[in-house]
Design a binder for these strands. Sequence first.
DNA 1: TTGTATGCGTTATCAA
DNA 2: TTGATAACGCATACAA
Lengths: 353, 353
Amino acid sequence: MITTLKDIAEKTGFSISTVSRVLHDKSNKSKISEETQLKIKQTAKDLGYRINTLARGLRLQKTHEIGVIVPDISNPFFSAMIKNIATELRKHGYNFIVYDSDENIVIERSAITSLLGKRVDGLIIASVGQDFSHLQKIRNSEIPFVMIDRCFDAFDVDSVSVDNVKGSLLAVNYLIKEGHSRIAFIQGLPGTYANETRLQGYKSALLDAGISIDERLIVGDDFRSLNGYLETKLLLKLSNPPTAIFTAGDLIVLGALEACRENNITIPRDLSLVTFDDPIFASYLSPALSAVEQPVTKMAEMAVALLYRRMKNPNDERRKVLLEPKLNIRSSVTRISMLMNIKHIIKTENTTE
Amino acid sequence: MITTLKDIAEKTGFSISTVSRVLHDKSNKSKISEETQLKIKQTAKDLGYRINTLARGLRLQKTHEIGVIVPDISNPFFSAMIKNIATELRKHGYNFIVYDSDENIVIERSAITSLLGKRVDGLIIASVGQDFSHLQKIRNSEIPFVMIDRCFDAFDVDSVSVDNVKGSLLAVNYLIKEGHSRIAFIQGLPGTYANETRLQGYKSALLDAGISIDERLIVGDDFRSLNGYLETKLLLKLSNPPTAIFTAGDLIVLGALEACRENNITIPRDLSLVTFDDPIFASYLSPALSAVEQPVTKMAEMAVALLYRRMKNPNDERRKVLLEPKLNIRSSVTRISMLMNIKHIIKTENTTE
DNA sequence: TTGTATGCGTTATCAA
DNA sequence: TTGATAACGCATACAA
């Protein structure tokens, strides 16, 4: 059987309250004799007592737990984020519970329900992000929460994300500077904050450079690798294929690489590639991948800081923090001239039946 | 305020039990009039009622939660494992809570305490694995649990892991077949099941081939990338450096690659490389990495199956499941002749000051 | 068909 | 210094 305070009380002859005080009350208010303390602590140990946090949480109306929801734990960006959030929360003495919504808003909703059912003291959410009606409800209740990475412009809550528009600008401007004008964008999940802002950056970079937007070069609908694979295959089949691809996330680019390899496309010779996100393995890929890096650690720190502030001062004004992205130039982009561009087109037409 | 059954009872005029039955009792035992049901359900919705799972768990002595502990969420192998466990548990209608022990046995212990405090119905643990006294306690209590990936031979519990010895044999035999005899092994955390079994496979492969073991070629002490980096640097400085390195995990090999790049070592020309674990990005690395693949999905399925079985039949005999590894040969290994071997040594001495 | 009463394990208030 | 008791929110045996 699982040992409870009652068991210890019966065994030692003291009351439940005394046992509880000895075992859990740090406040030192009531002085309990050394002898009693020792006896109780010893039998607690003997019986393998472990506090029931369900009961404690119920009684205290506080769990000291923070709920965290991310769209995909196996995405290196998010697993790094989780690690950093964990470290940060531990400093504040909080525990946390992670949920993976699998990029699925239905699962996200049930994750929130589940977390609120557990009466977590706060919530950090990287939303799938197509809709925020379910989040509106949280904001209206008194539970503190902050959004991270996947936010909504139109939704007034504490949030921290990277400046996605700027990140895309950095990447696409770089491609343009290297002579590219047919630049494709493989999107993540449409309608999500991360995707729309990155798309926006892509478009304005082109527009600013006087390059008109070719809608056939804006493709894809998912942040996972299969999407990158499929869309790259299709892009390569275009009669006038792009000379460069900019992908919206680190998993997408992996799929793109796979497609290129299958089609015997050598990067950067035949095709240039830049991606949003800069996973740990980017510099070891073949070729080393130029990528837009997000400040994950800082994002996690900020998110926890915002959450903590909101827990202490529930009525502070809400803040939206935008962090700086950074372009890491490696070797997946080639400089092209007009002539090379034409050569490239002819060649691609021949190789991809 | 957070809505409770009581609030709904007061608002509708029915008793708490009736409300509870309408909202949660699927057993259809007590017939409650359509009218009552509708009224209660409606006000529950209006008031934004969410069940308090702390209270329910306390009352039911069942939480329908499974605790999962892994040494490092950001390790692609474990994050993939988590995803698969999640999928599998969902099928059985279970929720789950993940903890990251950060390869730290102290954190692992507190994770277990925390999880048991939450009264999870079962536990799946990939232990840091140097010691199992804390796990012994769990086994002696009645909570079902299974170990995954990181097990203990001497500890009789349900467990599922890959045949690590065989995995190493596969990798090292392959290197030997390609002409290598000076093969280094960069370990993970010593004293852990995964590490010791992989080391054992490494050693017996060498011994079987009549190659004596050079202890200077067995290095490292951690599954993370920094370890791979440092040890590779040191190995390259040896007066008689290895012609091949076998690493114990996917993060280690990333560090090794970094070290090689910094020292202008070209793989596989100057050095061959094989690793345990086959992360999603292995085939896109430069060069594509030959790797020992673990059947993650099957491992997760088996773990959940074992756990489920133990929950239904607590007294079944305990099982240790060993799954088959698979060597994926790509292009990080070169065949060497005796002559090349000598050339290599001379060259390496020149390049690495 | 619905209500009453009890207890799950804990903490806090009040009393001794 | 210690104990009795109520309450947290819920589910269920038993009553009505």
